[in-house]
């Protein structure tokens, strides 16, 4: 079974058809999806801006990042769940949209970037925790993270376009 056949099969399921044809699921899911982007993205942005030294310089980096963690995971779980449901409502359109695949690739890069940060420079955070501006390596990570998230918002929005 090819990926296209899988998308076709998904699209033909009763669940997918209901999501697509009922008037309420799409706007409600869209609303939840964008809300979780605000909750999750706002904290990602503030965390990165702290590493870059653009805000809350007098608060240690680890305090900002650790206190945001449970909220970020909550936001990400809602974002992913509503995203999967939005995809299930239009599996064929997603399969045919280049920006859907770009979004998935960017999401993978976001995950990879977060993993590199946590297993690398963040392990030694005690050494630079209170620095107003983090070391170069951590700042590079923060810029990449911000850029990937902004690109992800663009790619996500453009799924509906092409």
């Amino acid at each position: 079974m090819s990926l296209h056949d899988a998308a076709q099969w998904l699209s033909d399921t009763q669940f997918s058809t209901a999501l697509r044809e009922d008037p309420y699921p799409y706007p409600v899911l869209g609303c939840i999806h964008v809300l979780s982007i605000a909750l999750f993205g706002g904290m990602v942005a503030i965390g990165n801006l702290r590493v870059l030294g653009y805000t809350m310089r007098d608060i240690p980096v680890s305090q900002v990042i650790d206190q945001f963690r449970p909220w970020k995971w909550t936001g990400f779980a809602i974002l992913a769940a509503s995203g999967v449901l939005l995809m299930l409502s239009e599996p064929l359109d997603c399969y045919n949209s280049i920006f859907f695949w770009v979004s998935l690739a960017l999401l993978a890069l976001v995950g990879l970037n977060a993993w590199i940060f946590r297993s690398g420079i963040y392990r030694r955070v005690v050494e630079w925790d209170s620095a107003a501006i983090a070391p170069q390596q951590a700042r590079n990570w923060a810029w990449v993270s911000l850029a990937l998230w902004i690109a992800l918002v663009f790619a996500g929005r453009l799924i509906a376009f092409a």
Binding site: A38, G42, M43, I46, V153, F154, R157
Partner: peptide
Amino acid sequence: EWVFPLVESIHICGFTLLVGTVAV
């Protein structure tokens, strides 16, 4: 036709910054 979705994407990023920081 691509200008509208691009400007709208910036609008969503601005929304994230504004409402995300207000939510915090």
